[in-house]
Simulated assay, not measured.
Amino acid sequence: MSIIAVENLSKIYPVAVKQPGIKGTLTHFFRRTYREIKAVQNVSFYIEPGEVVGFLGANGAGKTTTLKMLTGLIHPSEGKVKVAGYTPFRRQPQFLHKTSLVMGQKQQLLWDLPALDSLKINAAVYNLSDKVFQQRLSELARMLDIESKLIQPVRKLSLGERMKAELLAALLHHPQVLFLDEPTLGLDVNAQVAVREFLQEYNHRYQATILLTSHYMADITALCDRVLLIHQGQLIYDGSLEGLLARFAPCREVRVELARHLPTDKLSQYGDVKAIDGQQVRFLVRREDLTATISRLLSELQIQDMSVSEPPIEEVIGRLFSAGTVT
Rank of each mutant, 00 (worst) to 15 (best):
D117A: 01
K120S: 12
I121P: 08
I121V: 15
A123R: 05
A123E: 10
A123H: 08
A124P: 05
A124L: 11
V125P: 11
Y126H: 13
K131N: 11
K131F: 07
Q135P: 06
Q135S: 14
Q135A: 14
R136Q: 14
L137H: 07
L137A: 08
L137M: 11
L140R: 04
A141L: 02
R142M: 07
I146M: 02
E147H: 08
S148Q: 15
K149C: 12
L150I: 07
I151F: 12
I151H: 15
I151R: 15
Q152E: 14
P153H: 13
R155L: 11
L157A: 10
S158W: 03
S158Q: 08
L159Q: 10
L159I: 08
G160N: 06
E161H: 06
E161L: 08
E161S: 10
R162K: 14
K164A: 04
A165C: 12
A165D: 01
A165R: 02
L167I: 05
L168T: 07
L168W: 00
A170K: 00
L171H: 01
L171D: 01
L172T: 01
L172K: 04
L172M: 10
H173P: 10
H173I: 13
H174F: 07
V177H: 03
V177N: 04
V177A: 08
L178P: 00
L178Y: 10
F179E: 03
L180N: 05
L180Y: 04
E182V: 03
E182N: 04
P183C: 08
T184S: 15
T184A: 13
L185P: 06
L185I: 15
G186M: 05
L187F: 02
V189Q: 07
A191G: 10
A191M: 10
